[in-house]
């Protein structure tokens, strides 16, 4: 039995007066891949963004309940959001490299935390690019713009960029939905490798993807956590009728 990286208890989230998440209680295991699935607008992305407090950017958003990341309540007063986001990295739906060189993209997070020495930065850049399986493709053009990379390469760059902050938890919001099948395959393989070191929570629209890469799957519908369990169990023998309807393609 592993430890829990994230533990959520009675979480409710409202946008203005509209509820987006209702009484969600859920534990996420350390160093496992947990997939969040469900139809569009079911609250899975909103849920993901709770863990690094990205919902703070939305003005009307109110959150209640207890959310523990590595045992600390991240919505308690006095919590340093910057420190939280260093621990909990995030990869977005559309690859969003900064309009600067590959080198500067990766160096962004280390520089944020005060690492300025060239040797140290270069070491981090090589290590994370290597980890993201991009090193051999880009090592000769580190100082060229990251916008010149292909979509799949850009997304791996974004993963490397997130890794450079040395997080322990990695949130991925439909990381392959904007990519072609080959790039998707590369990223999935990368996720399988990364889970040895990182706790990964991934939102996906693609149920095959969830079965291929995740250890546990949570199914959301209309802001409720309908079903949560081992991926195999959820997909072969769901406990709830609604889950079965969704995974067999009857709606969504």
């Amino acid at each position: 039995m592993g430890k829990n990286a994230i533990s959520v208890k009675d979480c409710n989230l409202h946008y203005g007066s509209v509820p987006a998440l209702k009484n969600v209680t859920m534990d996420i295991r350390e160093r496992k891949v947990t997939a969040l699935i469900g139809p569009s607008g079911c609250g899975k992305s909103t849920f993901l963004r709770i863990f690094n407090r990205m919902n703070d950017l939305i003005e009307s958003c109110r959150i209640t309940g207890e959310i523990l990341v590595e045992g600390n309540d991240i919505y308690a007063s006095g919590v340093d959001v910057i420190q939280l986001r260093k621990t909990v990295g995030m990869v977005f739906q559309k690859p969003n490299p900064f309009p600067m060189s590959i080198y500067d993209n990766i160096a962004f997070a280390p520089r944020t935390f005060g690492i300025r020495k060239k040797a140290e930065l270069s070491e981090i850049i090589e290590r994370t690019l290597y980890r993201a399986g991009l090193w051999y493709e880009v090592k000769d053009r580190l100082h060229q713009s990251a916008l010149g990379l292909s979509g799949g390469q850009q997304q791996r760059l974004c993963i490397a960029r997130a890794l450079a902050a040395e997080p322990r938890i990695l949130l991925m919001d439909e990381p392959t939905s904007a990519l072609d099948p080959i790039s998707t395959g590369t990223i999935e393989a990368l996720i399988m490798e990364l889970k040895a070191e990182y706790t990964i929570v991934i939102v996906t629209h693609n149920m095959q993807q969830a079965t291929r890469i995740s250890d546990k799957t949570a199914f959301f519908l209309l802001g409720e956590l309908v079903e949560y369990g081992g991926t195999q169990k959820v997909f072969s023998n769901p406990f709830d009728g609604r889950t079965e309807s969704y995974i067999t393609g009857r709606f969504g």
Binding site: M90, F92, K94, N96, F98, A109, T112, C158, R161, A162
Partner: peptide, 15 residues
Amino acid sequence: VPQSLREASLALGAS
């Protein structure tokens, strides 16, 4: 300036 760039930098722990 695209919002996605702001989100990306904040998510990396930037102030």
